[in-house]
Every structure is written in structure tokens, then in C-alpha cells.
Design a protein around this nucleic acid. Sequence first.
RNA 1: GCCGGGAUGGCGGAACGGUAGACGCAGUAGACUCAAAAUCUACCGGGGCAACCCGUGCGGGUUCGAAUCCCGCUCCCGGCACCA
Length: 831
Amino acid sequence: MSSHEPGTTDAYVPQEIEPRWQAAWERDGLYEVDLHADGGKEPYYFLTMFPYPSGNLHAGHWYAETPADAAARYLRMRGYEVFFPMGYDAFGLPAENAAIKAAREGQDVHPARLTRERIATMTRQFRQMGAMFDWSHTLATCEPEYYRWNQWFFVKMFERGLAYRKESTVNWDPVDQTVLANEQVIDGRGERSGALVERRLMPQWHFAITHYADELLDFSGLDWPERVKTMQTNWIGRSEGAEVTFETETGDAVEVFTTRPDTLWGATFLVLAPEHPLVTKVTSDAQRDAVEAYVAQAGAMSEIDRTSETREKTGTFTGGYAVNPVNGARIPIWVADYVLVTYGTGAIMAVPAHDERDFAFARRYDLEVVPVVQGDAPLDGATMEEAYVGDGVMVNSGRFDGTPTGKGPDAGDGIARVIAWLEAEGLGRGTTTYRLRDWLISRQRYWGTPIPMLYCDACGVVPEREENLPVVLPEDVAFMPTGESPLKTHEAFLHATCPQCGGPATRETDTMDTFMDSSWYWLRYLSPDDETRPIDPALAKRWTPVHTYTGGIEHAILHLLYARFFTKVLRDLGWVEHDEPFLRLRNQGMILGSDGEKMSKRRGNVVDPDELVARYGADAVRAYLMFIGPWDQGGPWNDQGIEGVVRFLNRVWALFTADAAPGDASDEAVADLRRATHAAIQAVTEDFDAFQFNTAVAELMTLQNHLSKAKNAGLVAHPAWAEARSAFLRMLAPIAPHLAEELWHRAGEAASVHVATWPEVDRSALVVDAIDLVVQVNGKVRGQVTVAADAPDADVIAAAKAEPNVARYLEDATVRREIVVPGKLVNLVVG
RNA sequence: GCCGGGAUGGCGGAACGGUAGACGCAGUAGACUCAAAAUCUACCGGGGCAACCCGUGCGGGUUCGAAUCCCGCUCCCGGCACCA
């Protein structure tokens, strides 16, 4: 204790160092980038996902932001002009829910006030990170200066048909009192509330993301984790096949979608989704009661009941029949809820012999099974026990008998041949279907961007005029304890003038999904105060696409897919020239409580970064979060783990501040020092390039150990010591920016370490005269020899054989092979 | 069910096909101290006196040599899931 008293001795006191340097950096505008100026450096946009202003920064924010900051700092030292902004995704339910809760309790909390307070708090906390955020370019999406451009884009999209209103069955979250996009429904429950989602038919605004489905499947040129690309690809769910028209006996055409047109001859019944428009028409009088009951029952079920209830398939015969167009067979029409109205055409041809679901259904209801694809052995429709879904040769298929099935020329291309024939005969056509649905953008909530549309009795649905934007979200609202949007009863907001005819009109009270806000915010960071346009095209051209984007994997589908879609829309509207928003994507994992569980107040395993910073300093928290393990894996917090990092920082401090007696520096000792220094530079550089922060910190620890020995050996007066110190501090700078800065200045440097250049590897320092080689006999290590680095193989082998322990194994044996791996080992194969 | 990712000491984790366990935590012993903390030094996968043997989820294979490549499994995590 006594030896650590501040003031009496010179100890490492982060609580003193960190605020001092934070103030100095801010005073000097060290991290502010002049986006217009061409300083001769290559622009580099490094972006990390902006947070929702929840009130306080938690450990997860630190885990997301500080390694990203280190990577951004590294790139800056590598000579790029790095723009690293931060802002707030400030619309959203939690603030509004807090207001509703307060209203129930008779208190007055407004989401706007609450959000602005929270932003102020979090900005203060962000500054304690010592990150190089450029606070001269920030934004909060809840401000009219930002969301007016959401509205502006909405109108542009409306004009192009990319935003449209349609009545559709939607996911209604009864707790949050709003509809949700498909992407926000997890296992039938609302992503936020966890409430069972209900299905409702409502008129809703949509964005036509499906127009871009194929383009969104193309990730070429993107350095993104395979995992994210796969998830998006699965989500879009492209599926190639054919639409075939069946005619019913009532004279109606039923379109079905199939990926297996080569099995058309085996279609023994049709199945319509309960919501299919033709259900009523094809149903016979005899079956009407049963069908109506079934449809009603299916309609009453929630999505989760309908999909996960059982594996058992249910359905009802409609009494109607259709004709199989390829062979004239009369086949029954059924209605069953395993067919989804939202996918394909909402109707299928059932080929029980070659589809597992159809097979199960056919067996349950005793429907005909006709095999039309033969694999290794003939199939018997009456006795087969499971569907044959593999490839084979078409049988029972008229002119196509003998055609190999499957896709691609190698497989015989049966599918393509059947499609060509269907098209020629006018029976169907090749087509592609997607799982992806259009983006449902309407939310029945207050705290979001008002959708800038009006309803006029005379003109219908009309967009607000550009000059009237923004449609300001009124702040003088009363929150309902029910959660109903206060916009619905706000007279001044509701009653407006029709932009077209000047007559009375009613405003749309729905607001936009907050994912709209995050679909273009990085472009607004470039010119957040521009009142004339959403994006500055010159700045966008210079700085975007974003070079590196970091954030949580939980946004793999939602935010990242919407952002890609919106970028393509912006391109088509002429605002950007590129197709993709983010060139390189890296995801961090989740930081867990020390019990390995997700941090939560309920579990009591939350670590509070403010407390940690107060106790250990921001640098220690940063370094520990980087050291804990691979960034993309995340992992549990460990209270003892951070102590190890604190010890490391203390040793670094002592290494460069405590005096040491200079002594004789042998050539060998100097060479060792330089080798350790440059080996570390090489390793740390590679680690930063690969986002491997944990091994970068470990390398610095190793170098610190080396330097500590060199110092004790009296090398401090040698130039190699100054070289090592300089390199060490520059490599420490991205990780522990305050400590590095302090020691850098104490070492006599005038400028900030954060504008220093990254150290270069001197390859000559890595060269060694003598190397230790491992000697193996039959692949097992039996000894070590030291040889000259440039020794020819013959000498190396001779030395290996001479090693006493190796020689023992060679006595009664013949050496059959001699393998020399330069610089690594010798393996003698005997037998 | 399908598609990803993973499994390495007591713990977090390292390891271009080339000495498995870097770095750190915990632990053991020692130095300093009246003592403790802090700090420093050494040891630290298992077995064995030793030579050596065993060891990267399991079973095979390729290779002079496999944590790493291939085949077949088990378990864990994530995504999708009656998608025709």
C-alpha cells in the first residue's frame, strides 16, 4: 500500500492518466476527420453498429466497441485516413414502453426526453472508453433532421412502386401492440416481447425487397463470414422449378409450383392451402360443411400451432376434381394446412411416391401412390413404405419414359427437358420462387418515423409533399395505458390537408419499422447537418462503401439484409454508385457472465464497465476483453482473468518508467532483443489484419517478458532498447491507448502515439546464425541438434545421426528415408 | 430433417501438415516481509526412478509425420424448418 501512494512514487494510476489524455485528445481534435480534405491518405470507413440508447453502456457494448476501436486505430497507424463514427439507433419500443408504464402509474415520461437523456449518459460513458470516435459526425435517428430523410426516401420508393400498401395476413404481437416482420418472429413469438404472435388481416405498408431477391443472393466481392452469407441465402430461400396449370372440373385453373416437374405423371391429387381462393369454388355440396369447418379451424390456429403442433398431417377432401394435364388423370382436390398460402402459389400437386410429406398424407387418407421415378429397383405404389426422393429414370411418364431425372447435364437434365416440353405445350413454365417476403414496414407504434402518407376521400392514398417534410412526430402526446399509439387520437396530427386537392385528409398513423433507420445511417454520418439532401454524393463516393463493418451476429439477417436492400434502392435512385454497403464484415460473439450465462440482472451476473473502469482503468478493460479469446466466439467474463491483464499493464509501466543500470551489451544479447522485437511486430501485424486480438495481446506479453530480461541484462542504453520500446508502445497503442500515450510522451516523443506510423518488420533482424532442429526417428522426437542456419542438408543429417540419443535408435536399423524440413526438423525413417 | 460452426491441461485459450498446450488464470515451491498483501524466481497434461509410454470428443484412413487432410459417428452451439 505505502509504495503505491500516488504522488510519493511514480506508480501506474490509470484513473489519473486516462481522463487527462481523453481531454487532451479532444482538445486537439485528434480523432476528427476532415471528410472533404485530401490529405494524401487513402480514406477508410470503419464502422461499428450503432447502439440503441438503453441507458447505460454494458459489458457487451465494450466488447463490441473496444476491439473494433483497436482495429480502426491499427488501420490509422497503417497510413489510412480512418473515419470511425458513432451515433444512436434512437427510435424503438423500450423507451415507448417505459412511457406507457409510467402512464399506468400516473407518471409522465416522454420517450423523446428519456432517449435524449440516455444518449447524453451513454456519450459520456463512450468517452471513457478512450475510443477514437469522431464525435463531430454523429446522429440520433429520433431527431427530425434524420428521420425526415426516412420519409423522403419512403416517398421516392412509393413513387417507384417500391413502397406499397396491401391487405395481408400479418404477425400481430399482442403485447407490443404492433405487427412484426417475418424476420422479427422467432419460433412463433415476438422477437422482443416473447409473446405468441397472432395472425391478423390488416392493410400494411411494405417495401418490395423481393424485387432484389436474386441480387441479394450475390455476395461476390464481399469479405463476409461464410456463416452470415449462408444464413441470408437460406432466408431468401431461392428455389427453382415450374408452375404447372391444372384445370378443375369447375373449369378453373389451379397453378401449382413444383421443384420436381419430372414427377408430374405421379401427381395423384392436388392440395390447396386453406386460404386458397378456389377452395370454396371447387368444394362440392356434400363436402362443404367439412371443408368449411376445416378452413375455420386452420384459420383459428396461430402460426406456431399450425407448424409445430405435430408432424401429423391433416386435411379434408373438397369433393372436387382436377385433371392432370400431362396424362389426363382425374385426381381429387384436397385442402390441407401443410400447404402454405404464403409460399409458391398456395397450391401443390401431390406426388406421394416421391415426396415425404405427400406420401405421409396419402397413406393417412388412403390416396393413390404412383411411382414415376425408378431408382435401383422398381417401386410398388401399394406397398412402398417411404417416398423415393432420389434420382433415377422416369417411368410411367409417357414420352419421357427412360429419361434420367435430376438436375444438370450429368444427371440427364430430366427436369429441364420436362420444363421445355411444358412450355412448348402451354401447360406450364419454368419459374423461381423465394421464401423471402416483402418487408413489412408498418408499425402501430408512436416512437418511430411517421409514414408520410395521407388518406383523402377524393384522391385516395397520397404522399406528403417534399416541401412539407418532415412530418414531425408530435411530442405533446398522452400515452395510453393500453399501449395504443397516441397518434391515433392526436387531432392536430391526424387532420391535414391533402397535398393533391387541398381538401381535408387524414394522416397515416403507422410509423416505420426502426430497421429503416439503420438501413442507411452510415451515409448520413458523412453529412449529418446537411439540410438540403439526405446524402452528400461527393462524400459518399469518396468514403463508401464502408470498408469494415463490425457488430453482433444477431443482425446477420435482419439489419444486414435490409441494409443491403436499401443500398440497392439508393443506387437505383442515383444516390450511391456501389451495390453493396459493407465490403468487409466481422462479427463479435457475446460476452457472458462469469457463470457462462447471458448477463442479466435477474441472474446477478452482470459486470458493470463503469465499476471496472473505476477500479482498473479503461485500458485494462479493453485489453482484457481483447485477450479473453477469439473475438467472434465471445465467452464468459472472468474476474481473475482481468487481474492478469492488470499485472501485465503494471509490468509494462515498470518496464519503461523504473530506472535500470546500463551494462555491457553483448552482440548476441542485442541480436536476441532485436529478434524478439521484430518477431513480435510481424506477429502482431498479422493478428490485427486477421482480427485476432487475443493473440496480439499475447504476443505483446511475450515481448514484455523478453524486454524485462533485456533490461535486467543492462541493455537499456543500447539503441536496440529504444527501438524495442518505440515498437512496443506503438503496438500497445490500439489496445491500451492511454497507457501507450503516457509512456510514449515520457519516452520523449512530442506528437501523439496515435498519429505515429505502425512499426515495420526488419527481416534482417529475424535472421539467425544457428538453429535448433528437432530430430525424429520414425516420426517420434528423439533429440535436438543445433546447426548453422545455412548448413546443407547433408551436414544436418550427419549432425542428427550423431546425436547420442538418436544414434541409439539407428544402431541395428537401416535408414530408409531422410526427411529434412528446413529450419524445423529432421525425420529419419528406419526399418 | 437440412445448412453452418465447434469439441485441445484444473480454467480461458495457442499451434503455415513438422517438438501439442504459446500467452494468461488457478495451483505448488522459494526469495523479500515480524507477518500478510503486492512483487520477483522456478515448477506446472497424465503415468514412470529412468529410458520411455500415453495424450487434442469417438472409430477408421491418407502421410516419413495429423489437433490440422479424407471417410464414418457422438455430443454441444447457431440458423432454417410441412418452403412443395
